[in-house]
């Protein structure tokens, strides 16, 4: 990691230094903390799933596998488009990169729309934390839905952050702040987006496929 060729120090006297490998390393470390953040929740999930296996199974019946699957496909596709956007820019195809990035953002918004309908469906069915309907159920089911709202909620928050982040990056690509020879910001945002995708890949079976 001491390959100093990648550290380009500008000739200007104010030593603006650019270190793409360092920037990526920082991003990976940040993603690592994100995984640990969700790791705490996965741990809680594991404890309660172990404690109430049957009730988790019953509660899982109430979730729509169809919506979950559609959202999984949407997120996986958006991961592909963001990767394509990076490659396109590196191959100096700026317009394709912009299209792919816009597509990623659109898919992310689509995911959120789905999520909105899914959650409001749950709310109208009387399933939300503290609702009478939920409190009349078994403890295991209460916990299942508690975790469902917390974990998919925190994930949805990350999707929202991703939408904002990718939109800013899109603006930078359009304004030539990010160019083919300096893609590290785009790549890091792509990494973040893959993480959002990756976490969903674990949430999906844990909630939607345990029926």
């Amino acid at each position: 990691m001491t390959d100093s060729n990648h550290i380009i120090e500008s000739a200007a006297d104010n030593h603006i230094h650019r270190d793409d490998i360092g920037a990526k390393m920082g991003m990976w470390l940040f993603l690592f903390t994100e995984i640990l953040l969700f790791g705490g929740l996965f741990l809680v999930y594991a404890v309660y799933r172990f404690q109430y296996p049957d009730q988790f199974h019953i509660a899982g019946m109430d979730l729509s596998t169809a919506i979950g699957t559609i959202n999984t496909i949407i997120l996986l596709t958006s991961s592909l488009t963001v990767a394509l956007s990076i490659t396109a820019l590196q191959k100096q195809n700026k317009s394709l990169s912009i299209i792919m990035l816009s597509l990623t953002i659109s898919l992310a918004i689509l995911f959120m729309i789905n999520k909105y309908f899914e959650w409001s469906g749950k709310f109208s069915a009387g399933i939300y934390p503290g609702s009478e309907d939920l409190l009349s159920r078994h403890n295991g089911e209460i916990l299942f839905f508690g975790l469902y709202f917390v974990m998919t909620g925190l994930h949805a928050l990350h999707v929202l952050v991703g939408i904002v982040l990718l939109s800013i990056i899109l603006g930078m690509v359009v304004n030539k702040k990010i160019t083919y020879d300096y893609t590290v910001k785009l790549e890091n945002s792509g990494l973040y987006w893959h993480l959002v995708d990756l976490i969903w890949i674990f949430l999906f079976p844990l909630f939607y496929l345990i029926q």
Binding site: V44, Y52, G130, H138, I142, L143
Partner: peptide, 26 residues
Amino acid sequence: PVIAITIVLVIIERLFGVGIFDPSLG
């Protein structure tokens, strides 16, 4: 990050009563 998520859970517990740390809810 582990304390971060724990803190978030306590706040959620206080606001919404999800029950993750509440024995009466399992």
